[in-house]
């Protein structure tokens, strides 16, 4: 944390970047268009659908270069500048190309006190890159995340805006990285309510394959 306060430089985005997505790929399929129009119909004005449409575009193109943001704006009929302002406001929209797997390691609040930085530094050392950077093979980007809303199962991380991995420790990180290298993204994991364990003997959901409990959090070796 705190890099910005010591080196407070705000870079300017490339104002005339080369197009990354070729024109023939820079289109939505008719199904995608239909989906976007459904979202548009959910709001009094089309603007409301911009966040969903940006999500769809990010899933399709893996990130949001300017031409994609422009495409989204055109598809829902809002000014390009507005869509661009929205895209840069939110942290989960990737404005530049990231690794195949983006590891958002939470270090905020509870995670800080329960070893979030240990995990962040462990992953950084293991992958040989700093937070904010992508490994040379393009597989991993490590990011330091603000509170992800899983404080009871700290430390934890999120994989590419998708599944949460709870109750992290070094072994778990090792296994996770190996699995991701093989292209296996962990399934959704349900975290059991302590009271369910007492009253129902475990997780209440029968339809999830991956289940974890809240456990005693690890002792943080480094606080920051």
């Amino acid at each position: 944390m705190g890099d910005f306060i010591k080196h407070p430089f705000v870079d300017m985005p490339d104002r005339n970047p080369e197009q990354v997505i070729p024109n023939d790929q820079l289109v939505f399929t008719s199904e995608e268009k239909k989906q976007i129009q459904t979202w548009v119909s959910h709001y009094p004005t089309a603007d409301g659908a911009v966040m969903r449409a940006l999500w769809l575009a990010q899933e399709k193109f893996s990130f949001l270069p300017p031409e994609v943001i422009k495409l989204v704006a055109a598809e829902i009929g809002i000014p390009y500048a507005n869509a661009y302002g929205v895209a840069t406001f939110y942290t989960q929209y990737f404005k530049e190309k990231k690794g195949k797997h983006v590891l958002d390691v939470c270090t905020c609040f509870s995670c800080q006190l329960c070893g979030g930085y240990d995990m962040l530094h462990y992953i950084e050392n293991k992958l040989g890159v700093h937070k904010g950077e992508t490994t040379k093979d393009g597989l991993f980007t490590i990011q330091e995340a603000e509170c992800l809303g899983a404080c009871g199962s700290a430390p934890m991380l999120q994989i590419t805006n998708g599944p949460f991995v709870h109750n992290l420790n070094k072994d778990k990180v090792d296994a996770l990285l190996d699995a991701l290298r093989e292209g296996k993204v962990p399934a959704f994991t349900s975290v059991t309510l302590p009271q369910d364990e007492d009253e129902m003997g475990g997780n209440r959901r029968t339809d999830v394959s991956s289940v974890e409990s809240y456990i005693v959090p690890p002792i943080s070796e480094t606080v920051s």
């Binding site: 329960c114 700290a154 309510l193 009271q195 809240y214 005693v216 959090p217």
Partner: peptide, 11 residues
């Protein structure tokens, strides 16, 4: 409840 307790979680 989170942090340095033996049994964190939602209660």
């Amino acid at each position: 409840i989170s942090g340095h307790v033996n049994r964190p979680g939602v209660f």
